[in-house]
């Protein structure tokens, strides 16, 4: 049996909102250590890797490994029925064909229960764990979201170049061109505003703006985003959870 209780429904809401426009359905793999998901979008350009560790939950138990096939649009509708501050418990029997979703209002004496029909999803898993990294940038997630939105007004591609002491984001299209350069900065009073850049090799990569638009839907999950880049390899965009992460692997564009 699986039972996981979130202190606030808002966390699961944010996770599902960040995933549902990229993949319509995916398997949630539940073990005694927590819940993980790997899913690839239909065009096989963007991969989502989610880990919700056991410690994220107020209470967690999973007696036997369970795979829950979940339609994210339907899941989003049901979890949208709870208030952000409610306790949210997900519950499934070992051979369940539904997922129980229970909201508890912390003030009123009110409990709401829903059942989501589970799906049988056949999906392959990609080996993404052994990637090397040439450059790592950590910056405020809201800043990264604004850069992606601003550059998307110019072009369907965003070029990222990283040198020893700066990262440059630039786009060029029919109406013109633009660029944003960021440099490392330590803000002691507001550590969430700090920017770090570490570099083994200079980077010059281009990514599709429409996929970046999907990635930045995770902005509300974390104040920071970490971008790991390697020449001629997918970019990794990581939003940390209180215990775990939501990562996106985005295949780069290349010149013919």
């Amino acid at each position: 049996m699986l039972e996981g209780k979130f202190e606030e429904a808002s966390l699961l809401k944010k996770i599902v909102e960040a995933m549902k426009d990229c993949v319509s359905s995916c398997n949630f793999n539940c073990t005694e250590n927590g819940i993980s998901v790997q899913a690839v979008d239909n065009s096989r350009v963007l991969l989502i890797s989610l880990l919700i560790e056991k410690d994220t939950f107020e209470e967690y138990r999973c007696d036997r490994n369970i795979t829950l096939g979940i339609g994210l649009g339907s899941f989003s509708k049901i979890i949208g029925n709870g208030a952000n501050s409610d306790y949210l418990t997900i519950q499934a029997e070992d051979d369940a064909d539904t997922l129980g979703i229970i909201f508890e209002d912390k003030v009123k004496d009110k409990i709401s229960e829903y059942n989501l029909k589970l799906l049988d999803i056949d999906a392959d898993l990609l080996e993404v764990d052994a990637m090397e990294t040439d450059a790592t940038i950590t910056l405020p997630s809201a800043d990264f979201a604004k850069i992606c939105k601003d550059m998307k007004t110019l072009s369907e591609s965003l070029q990222i170049t990283v040198t020893k002491d700066s990262a440059k984001f630039q786009s060029a299209g029919e109406i013109g061109s633009g660029s944003v350069v960021i440099k490392p900065k330590t803000d002691i009073d507001h550590p969430e505003e700090s920017i770090t850049i570490s570099l083994d090799k200079p980077i010059d990569l281009s990514f599709g703006s429409k996929y970046l638009s999907d990635i930045i839907k995770a902005t509300s999950l974390s104040q920071k985003v970490t971008i790991k880049l390697t020449e001629d390899s997918p970019g990794v965009f990581e939003y940390k959870l209180p215990s775990g992460y939501l990562r996106f692997y985005l295949a780069p564009k290349f010149d013919e």
Binding site: V40, S43, R44, V45, L46, L47, D124, L125, L126, E127, V128, S155, E156, S157, G173, S206, G208, S233, P234, Y249, A251, P252, K253, F254, D255, E256
Partner: peptide, 14 residues
């Protein structure tokens, strides 16, 4: 503005 790559070019199936 370049050709979009696919993940299958970079990662093998587990």
């Amino acid at each position: 503005t370049g050709t979009q790559g696919r993940l299958d070019k970079f990662f093998v199936v587990k």
